[in-house]
Amino acid sequence: MLLRGGPVPGYFQPTQIRCPQGGSIAIATNGTFAGGTPSVLNAGLLIGSPYRLKITEIPGLPGVELYPTVELLDRLHPPVGLEIRFPIPIHLTSQELRMAAEGLFVTRVIYLEDPTNPVVIQDQANRQRFLDVRFNEDPLRVADQLGRPMAILRIGSRQPRMDRQTERFMFSSPPVRSIMPPQQSSIPADKLERAIISTPSIGRLR
């Protein structure tokens, strides 16, 4: 899978990580979590290296800190100069953060939709569609059938230990490139067409 799409080693794929409004996101860099950015984190990540995030100030969960991981599986090939305009979006919803704080483990596979078989609904920039699968189904396999898997987000409630295991917890802090926020759309938000976002009815795998 990593060989698909051309030379991926050393390429920093622009990624946009969003958490609920009011939350703070930090990514492990040089063995520590740098100062968190509010709500949206834009960063260039290497493909194949897991990254540890730190989510704090979660709305509705005061004092709770969560440490999800992000792993990119593939890269995009945008026209030259449009790399930052088209990042891979990874959204952490309030529901998922709450479930993780209660002890559940959430796995979300972000995939590039097949344009020849799209779900005919209007997408919104601040919400990512998701399809729930059962516990005995592999979300990576389902995503591979619906499109091209791009990233894996794992959210649990594991807390780091500040000892010699800390570096292992952070996956040795792979290099990160910080990227300025992408160019916002010239269309105001109120002009965007509003559509009801619902879970698409796609057949379950057995």
Partner: peptide, 17 residues
């Protein structure tokens, strides 16, 4: 027209399972 679109597949695991 370059217009990639993303979606996701989610699985929630718990102790009961």
């Amino acid at each position: 027209i370059y217009a990639p679109r993303f979606a996701s597949v989610r699985r929630v695991d718990g102790l009961n399972q």
